[in-house]
Design a binder for these strands. Sequence first.
DNA 1: GTTAATAGATATCGCTGTTATGCAACAATG
DNA 2: CATTGTTGCATAACAGCGATATCTATTAAC
Lengths: 218, 218
Amino acid sequence: MSPRRSDPATKPALVDIAARLLAENGPQALSTRRIAAEADSSTMTVYTHFGGMSGLVREMVREGFARLQERLTSVRSTDDPVADMALLGRAYRINALANPHLYAVMFGGSSLAGFSLSEEDRQHGRYTLGNVAECAERCLTSGRFRPGDAILVAHQMWTAIHGLVTLELGGYLIPPYDADTCVEAQLVGLMVSAGDDWQAASESVARSLTRIGEIETA
Amino acid sequence: MSPRRSDPATKPALVDIAARLLAENGPQALSTRRIAAEADSSTMTVYTHFGGMSGLVREMVREGFARLQERLTSVRSTDDPVADMALLGRAYRINALANPHLYAVMFGGSSLAGFSLSEEDRQHGRYTLGNVAECAERCLTSGRFRPGDAILVAHQMWTAIHGLVTLELGGYLIPPYDADTCVEAQLVGLMVSAGDDWQAASESVARSLTRIGEIETA
DNA sequence: GTTAATAGATATCGCTGTTATGCAACAATG
DNA sequence: CATTGTTGCATAACAGCGATATCTATTAAC
């Protein structure tokens, strides 16, 4: 009447193995046979637990967004919401640089391989913007930002930082400008475009740099 | 003493076939056997002409950047450099939407598959920014933009629009904001962050929308 | 203890990129 | 024009991939 139950610890263990293979040996190493070899089992484990390779990839995308969310929530709210926002941008970038392959799968993997993200997965991705939108709301109510829609502001922050990080990971940044310089300029520019004063934005961005320890350890 | 020469027209023909397969049937259709079947030849053609699948992909990346460059150069210079800049942004996005799979290979294909772009390929990508930097220079000399470095300004334009397009193609844009609304907001924000007046930027961005015909046919 | 249902192993299929082999076609040379 | 060296391309094969069918054995419920 009742079936055999599998070890509930094997599923996250498989995700861990897959994440490690992806981080250490690149996307080529993400094969059912290699994962099975690392887990001392057969290729069937991937199918019984995730229904296939794409299911495992989707689980890894969830894991990637969880790491991003964790990094973003490590930014504490202070009385300088613009500095908080700048630190959120830095946290986003640091998370991407810490998990480059995972980041590539999260945002660029849907079209190249056969992996199609479901609408629920995308919704998970959009939840990530919650932290940013909340901070944007504080920036708006504090009067630092021009009156407007918090979600739209958060969106602009996301797209700009995401684009910068994507090009940085792809090696498309133009010498002699290093990534750090571009990040500073991008952050200040974003705050100004949202309505903040130039000098105040520069100071807040500089202040966020002093709080880099909040997000580096997380 | 002298070898047999192949038809010089077969190489671009293969690139065309590959680009068509990619656009119509997605990345999965990019296989040596499928290409060979379309070209009425064997899988060896890919190796004799490109040295392998990655070589063909690199050639397609070059093709993708060529199309982007062609679209960007179709933007004519007027006495409103900010409107020209906004139209460059629209051209960038329209090119990406017209060639979504190719765009994905150009910027997201290096990490997921085994295709590694050489430094020369990346340099080709950076040349794309030449049009934008030129336009940024005109925005700076006209006094619309705050004094600064044209390349850095062009960089911020690129990263922001690239990020927006990437998220749009990935389906990560947040309802109820459609992509067009985000584009308008992003463009105006970019001009303001570069130093332009808010109202003047809004007018120039709106003016660029009336010139959309310059880039849609190209 | 019996039984039903599932986890996992094995083998296989169809597909992929890649390579070794062989042949045919061309360009240069005499 | 004949020879010859070089190369393009076809055929077949190999290693690897994801996916599946089949089978065994384990486990939870009765």
